[in-house]
């Protein structure tokens, strides 16, 4: 079927989105920074932002590798 690898790619993206959501809810969201007074809230948000951005970068990296694996031969042909 034409475009089958793209359907597979979309499915992988969907699964990674759901897994990423689980990581955010169960690992990143419960992180709590205390002991810095008024800075607690800012530090807490900052750390969560950095981890979230790192996750997005990791997601892009994984998708890029999968893209190369699925499509490189096709495109080069």
């Amino acid at each position: 079927m034409r475009g089958l690898p793209i359907f597979a790619y979309i499915s992988v993206m969907w699964i990674l989105i759901i897994i990423g959501g689980g990581l955010l809810v169960f690992i990143i969201a419960p992180i709590s920074i205390t002991g810095y007074g008024k800075l607690d809230h800012i530090l807490d948000s900052g750390v969560k932002a950095v981890i979230s951005i790192s996750l997005v970068v990791a997601w892009i990296f994984i998708m890029s590798k999968i893209k190369n694996w699925i499509f490189q031969r096709k495109v080069s042909h």
């Binding site: 759901i18 959501g21 689980g22 809810v25 169960f26 990143i28 948000s45 969560k48 979230s52």
Partner: peptide, 12 residues
């Protein structure tokens, strides 16, 4: 998020 619930991120 699906299955896992929500994350409160007011500033983000």
């Amino acid at each position: 998020f699906p299955l896992f619930g929500m994350v409160k991120i007011p500033e983000l």
